[in-house]
Amino acid sequence: MCGFRKVSAMLRPAMSQPNDNIIEIRNLCFSRGSRAIFKGLNINIKRGEVTAVMGPSGTGKTTLLRLITRQLRPDSGQILVDGVDIATLNKKQLYQLRKRFGMLFQNGALLTDLSVFENVAFPLREHTELSNRLIRHVVLTKLHAVGLRGAADMMPAELSGGMARRVALARAMVTDPDILIYDEPFVGLDPISMGVIVRLVRRMNDALGISSILVSHDVDEISTVSDCSYLISDGKVAASGSPDELNRASSELVRQFMHGMADGPVAFHFQAPDYAEQLLGRDAE
């Protein structure tokens, strides 16, 4: 059954979808209070590819993921998944759509009252009528894929940060989603775990024929894993293209970001009054 679904998902682009883009973001605007986070953002996520969204801290990368999954609603603009505007979906339809998504949260977001095994089994128990035996098979297979079959009986509190994220990855892919979303998957990982996750992201995307969206500011890792990258700055797409294209870009902003330069269009210092005046001026007394 699952196998059939996977095959049909792989055939879908050729058969019934005239559009290459699984997700299209059109003219997206979103503000928090008086602060505008997105001012007319346009992004296309291609089917079957790993698309990376990069940007300096505070550019709203996580917010973008929450908008794509409609945990937040945009002020204006459209987000289309397979051509359907997600703003028009009712709660039931939205939950049906979310079954096609798998999401890896920044901190893993494992359910702390369930064991590792039960965490991974959670979506299957909620949405399917599979027998316990079959669930056990599927869960152990997924845990094996992330190298944590031996940790099945542990509780989330006993795991290290990297292990928790790998369990969360197993949970995100246990229902064989069409779209996998990764929120900062490389933050705070040791080099070994980082290498494992990078390989897993690529391998799962290619082996299972899914589409992946990856939000991160780790330029090196993104370059090895992504097919297409978007660099967001000041609420808009500042540059897009393959990692090579971005590396060769002439824009000051892109060069500053890709090469990690402290000085450039993105100021290191947050907006503040004059330094000398603040230290020596009247306020100092």
Partner: peptide
């Protein structure tokens, strides 16, 4: 704390209504 650690968001993303669960 479940909310603060994104557990409720994770449930929503797994198409499980946190109010119900």
């Amino acid at each position: 704390l479940m909310k603060a650690t994104d557990q409720l968001s994770a449930m929503e993303m797994m198409a499980v209504d946190p109010i119900r669960r």
